[in-house]
Computed example of a mutant assay.
Amino acid sequence: MPTSPRTTTPQAADPYHEPRRENCPWCGGERLRTRARAAAPGRRGPGTCVMDECRDCGHAFQNPRFTVEGLALYHRDFRAARNPSPRAVRRRHRAAARTVLPLAEPESWLDVGTGHAGFPEAAREVFPYTSFDGLDPTPRVEQARLAGRVEEAHIGDLTNPWILPHLYARYDVVSMFRHLEHIPDPRAELRAALTALRPGGHLLLELPNPQSAFALLLGRRWPPYRQPRHLHLPPLANLCAELENQGCDILTTDRRTLSSHTYRIVARKPTEPS
Rank of each mutant, 00 (worst) to 15 (best):
I155N: 01
D52A: 10
I183K: 07
I265T: 01
N83W: 10
R92I: 09
R35M: 12
F61Y: 04
G58Q: 06
H179N: 00
N245T: 15
G118R: 02
I265L: 04
H75I: 02
Y263L: 07
R178E: 12
G200N: 00
P5H: 02
R92T: 07
P64N: 14
Q11N: 15
A95D: 07
T8G: 11
P15Y: 14
A213F: 03
G134F: 03
R79S: 12
T271G: 12
L73M: 09
R76E: 15
A147W: 09
L251P: 08
D77P: 06
P10G: 15
E242K: 02
T48F: 09
R220V: 11
R140W: 03
R268S: 06
E121I: 02
D249W: 06
C24P: 08
G134N: 06
L236C: 06
F78Y: 05
T257S: 15
Q246Y: 08
L236T: 01
C49Q: 10
P235G: 04
A188C: 14
R226N: 04
H75N: 12
D172E: 10
A147R: 11
R76G: 13
A193H: 00
I183P: 05
H93G: 06
A267P: 00
R37P: 01
E22G: 09
L216F: 11
E142A: 11
C49V: 14
N83T: 15
M1S: 09
H179M: 00
A72F: 09
S274I: 13
N245A: 13
R33V: 13
Q246D: 10
L73F: 10
L73K: 05
P270T: 15
N63Y: 01
T114P: 08
A144F: 05
D254S: 08
W222I: 05
V150N: 04
C54Q: 03
D56W: 00
I183W: 04
P208I: 03
D136W: 07
R140N: 02
G29V: 05
G134W: 01
T130G: 09
G219I: 10
L164R: 10
R31T: 08
P270M: 04
Q227T: 07
E272I: 11
R229N: 14
A38M: 05
F127K: 01
L207G: 00
G156Y: 00
G58Y: 05
R35I: 09
R79I: 01
P128Q: 08
N245G: 15
A188H: 10
A147H: 11
A215F: 07
T48W: 01
W109Q: 02
A169G: 11
D56E: 00
H230D: 11
D14M: 15
D136L: 05
H17R: 14
P184R: 01
P86M: 02
M51T: 06
G201P: 06
L146H: 02
L236S: 02
N160D: 14
G47D: 08
D157P: 05
C240V: 08
R6Y: 02
P224V: 07
T34L: 06
T7W: 12
P210Y: 00
P270N: 03
R220I: 02
L243P: 06
G115M: 09
D172V: 00
R226P: 08
E125W: 15
E107N: 10
A39H: 13
G118W: 08
C57S: 04
H230C: 12
T271F: 07
T9L: 13
G29F: 04
R20W: 10
T3K: 10
S259Q: 11
H166C: 08
M176K: 04
T253R: 07
